[in-house]
Design a protein around this nucleic acid. Sequence first.
DNA 1: TTTTGTGTTGAA
DNA 2: TCAACACAAAAG
Length: 321
Amino acid sequence: MDANCFYDQMANDSISSCPTASEMSVDDHSENGTEVESKKLPSSRYKGVVPQPNGRWGAQIYEKHQRVWLGTFTEEEEAAKVYDIAALRFRGQNAITNFQTSSESDDDYIEKMFLSSHSKAEIVDMLRKHTYQLELEQSKQNYACYGIGNSQGFSDLFGSNPFQETALEFLFDKVLTPSDVGKLNRMVIPKQQAEKHFALSSDIASKGVLLNFEDNTGKVWRLRYCYWGSSQSYVLTKGWSRFVKEKSLKAGDSVSFWRSNIGPNSRFFIDSKPQQQQNGSGFEEMQSQEEVGLLNPDDRSGGVRLFGVNILEKPNNLNCR
DNA sequence: TTTTGTGTTGAA
DNA sequence: TCAACACAAAAG
């Protein structure tokens, strides 16, 4: 493509993407395009932005001695903004960017969370496909649906989890064994899960604690949770047999544990599912959140699901009511 | 045929 | 790390 074609394309694409006079070499004005220098592409005034032969602009960022291509864009400024987004994700809040990016507004805070909750590859993929803004907006809408619902700005909540009123966190599943639904009147909680989600201090471990679990009907089940030293296992005891009976649980069925909030006001939830039926007695509130992306039923790795991704590690503290 | 984005190089 | 340049690969 010669210079004339190049600038024709520039004119078609966007007025604002045309080079300034200072960026255009004298030879660019030649009519016949025979000058060698006329093919020289205009440099971008933005970091991470490179000109393309067709007059568009490419965005790229470097990491570990390798270029990461961020896509091509009609507008030079658009490419610059894309670089900024990548820079924030790759290099953090202190990254040098083309435009002012840091503020304490709610939107900016959501975007920070959005960025940090997606892998670099995911962000790059969005940028290259030009879907970043769309996905970000969808995340904001998800937040609006399940937000705190008061007038308090996010910035007021820095230092704590601003989404704690909204997050419903999947803890773990347990496929019930015959003994879990038998006459022992107890359910063994896998040690790894127990120590992770229901950690007890040693002094109260043997004594046990009463935990409240809400089921899908809103009914609260008060279950005794303790550690049995004899079998070195964590168990739900008092109240469990009644739960089994009322839910008609059998071996092979499963129970799921969830929690909402992080901190002193944590609430636990319990849900049961028949062995063969995966979509039967779903937790209505949880399902509705899954539908909007707050929770991902396919990804039960344990993190809080926000903006369609997991963003928080599970806390290790136990909160009894 | 047009556009994207990679290979490569040299500067900072 | 970064941008410039050339050009092969991919897309239309």
